[in-house]
């Protein structure tokens, strides 16, 4: 085994092109466990945690780009305008883990329990991939993550970051597990309201082979809010039954399995509860902000 220490993204991509088996390491919170327990012995590891090009974010023309190497603790501290992302980041591991772990790592590992992933799915984010020669590929999140720990990253590519169109409206991330910290989600949910598009977006983690959206529940809630006039008037009454049915429809979108952390039935139930809470929070937030 050998360790590659590129100083720039360009160098890293050239090394990736010439030695495709090099496994990138940034926060190490996944890869080091595999190494420590002798589960993997890659031919080469490429240290990318300090590549300046991955440690940045940028706003332009209504979109936000987040570098793959920004650790969760910086997101919590500096990106407060993205509340669901901050809430998800704060549930990642512990302070020690958040100081190292990155969204790029969640994307690279592509675990259905990756805390940032439901947020990226609900943001309709793209994943930005790069390879030598300045070649950039942008994939919608749903096309990037293809299965549990499976994604569309090519052997000669690195994950540059992720990019989404900034939407106006409330949103949240919530997660069920046995503790408030150091816990792998049993079920997680991100809900985002898009005030301008008058749409509701919901994404589920840990209840399927990939992150799942709930399109039927999304359009149901958006229509019900239209019918009740809630998009125009945040104080307009939305029947309780709508919130309950929204929960049921979100739960129906889940594809959970029984595993060591919980049963499929519990997970499906959790999805309904999380969805109802998230919609209520969003509706309450709109009352406070006047849906601005």
């Amino acid at each position: 085994m050998h360790v590659l220490l590129p100083r720039t993204l360009e160098e890293a991509l050239e090394m990736k092109a010439s030695a495709p088996p090099a496994v990138p390491i940034a926060g190490g919170t996944d890869l080091m466990v595999e190494l420590n327990f002798d589960r993997t012995r890659p031919q080469a590891i490429m240290e990318i945690s300090r590549l300046p090009e991955l440690n940045v974010w940028r706003r332009e023309n209504g979109t936000f780009s987040l570098g793959a190497g920004v650790p969760y603790s910086r997101i919590v501290r500096d990106l407060t305008e993205f509340r669901p992302l901050v809430e998800a980041s704060r549930t990642v591991g512990s302070p020690q883990i958040r100081n190292r772990g990155t969204v790029g790592g969640n994307l690279g590992t592509s675990s259905p329990a990756g805390d940032a992933l439901p947020v990226l799915a609900a943001y309709d984010a793209e994943v930005v991939l790069a390879k030598a020669g300045g070649k950039i590929r942008r994939l919608p999140f749903a096309q990037f993550m293809t299965g549990p720990k499976k994604n569309a990253l090519a052997p000669d590519e690195l994950i540059l970051g992720t990019r989404w169109k900034v939407v106006r409206g409330p949103g949240s991330f919530s997660k069920i597990g046995t503790r408030n910290a150091m816990v792998i989600a049993l079920a997680s949910l991100c809900l985002v309201l898009d005030e301008d598009g008058r749409s509701v977006r919901v994404a589920l983690g840990s209840v399927g082979p990939t992150i799942l959206r709930a399109p039927d529940a999304e359009s149901f809630a958006a229509r019900a809010m239209e019918t009740a006039g809630v998009w125009r008037d945040p104080f307009g009454p939305l029947p309780t039954r709508v919130i309950e049915e929204f929960g049921e429809r979100v739960a129906a979108a889940a594809k959970p399995i029984d595993d060591v952390r919980g049963t499929a039935a519990y997970r499906r139930h959790a999805c309904a509860v999380l969805a109802q809470r998230a919609l209520r929070w969003a509706l309450d937030d709109r009352k406070l902000t006047g849906a601005r």
């Binding site: 190490g28 080091m32 590891i45 240290e47 945690s49 603790s73 302070p95 883990i97």
Partner: peptide
Amino acid sequence: GELVCSCLVLAAQAH
């Protein structure tokens, strides 16, 4: 200056 778990840092990353 950042609090980390040293078991999750590759020694080479501290070089």
